[in-house]
């Protein structure tokens, strides 16, 4: 059964699109024939109970699943119409255009500056490194807090600051899409709020796909929401209609907190 929930994608077409995408870990099917589109410069939230395949799905967009032993992908994932799993595609190149922020803040055990500069350096960046680091930290709303301590270890920052540093680090590679895997789940409510505000800001320039456990968060920050259950995409559409007027019973049960 294949259903494409059509949403407005504008003239340029979707930034990301999956068609009949399935992911296997060995014999287990983690994602089951999922097809959907992510419009440019929008925030798409992936929600669903634990183990529903939302993180796996997210990791298909920058081929992080390649690093998992035994993972296998079927179907198509397209980035501006280019199949990301075509044999000529370099996963390293993909990740430079489609950045990722992880569940737990994972700064490198280096200085704040070096964390942000690592991406540009491996990408042979030839411009003004200081300016790029500053711009990235400003975009991640961290600059004012760290401008005087750029040479200090990233581990000296609080959890919320570390996560914004990780976002800055990703922005420094100048990606077009940001994938976020429950970026606020390890943070306290105030740090979470700052991350959410940041996502709202970033949406002006970036396409964002975010996995979240927190339905209020999905409702607050996303334009579109996809509900996954046991690897299948149950429903996808504008966030208000998913939360206020879901078409599927399971979606309604989940968003109203009756299971999950």
């Amino acid at each position: 059964m294949t259903t494409i929930y059509d949403i407005e994608v504008g003239e340029e077409g979707p930034a990301l699109e999956t068609r009949d995408l399935s992911v296997f870990y060995g014999e287990t099917m983690a994602v089951d024939h999922v097809s959907f589109r992510v419009p440019e410069r929008s925030v798409v939230a992936l929600i669903g109970p634990s183990g529903c395949g939302k993180s796996t799905l997210l990791r298909c967009f920058n081929r992080m699943n390649d690093l998992v032993r035994g993972a296998r992908v079927e179907g198509a994932v397209e980035f501006h119409g280019q199949d990301l799993y075509a044999p000529t595609i370099d996963p390293v190149e993909v990740r430079r255009h489609i950045g990722m922020v992880f569940q737990k803040p994972n700064p490198f055990p280096k200085s704040i500056y070096d964390n942000v500069a690592f991406g540009p350096r491996i990408n042979n960046f030839r411009g003004d490194e200081d300016a790029l680091v500053e711009a990235s930290l400003r975009r991640a709303a961290l600059w004012d807090e760290v401008r005087d301590r750029l040479e200090e270890s990233a581990y000296s920052l609080s959890g919320g600051q570390q996560q914004r540093l990780c976002i800055a680090r990703t922005l420094a590679v100048t990606p077009e899409v940001l994938l976020m895997d429950e970026p606020a789940s390890a943070l306290d409510p105030i740090a979470t709020q700052r991350i959410e505000e940041l996502i709202y800001e970033l949406k002006k320039d970036y396409t964002i796909v975010i996995v979240t456990h927190n339905m209020q968060q999905a409702a607050r920050i996303s334009d579109y929401t996809a509900f996954l259950y046991m690897g299948k995409l149950i429903e996808y559409g504008p966030t208000d209609s998913i939360f206020t007027n879901p078409r599927e019973e399971r979606t309604e049960a989940y968003v109203t907190g009756r299971f999950g």
């Binding site: 690093l67 190149e93 990740r95 950045g99 992880f102 490198f108 680090r169």
Partner: peptide, 13 residues
């Protein structure tokens, strides 16, 4: 492994 993921996620070979 989170350190490896972070680096791969930035497009490191």
């Amino acid at each position: 492994s989170t350190i490896r993921e972070a680096a791969y996620g930035l497009g490191a070979t």
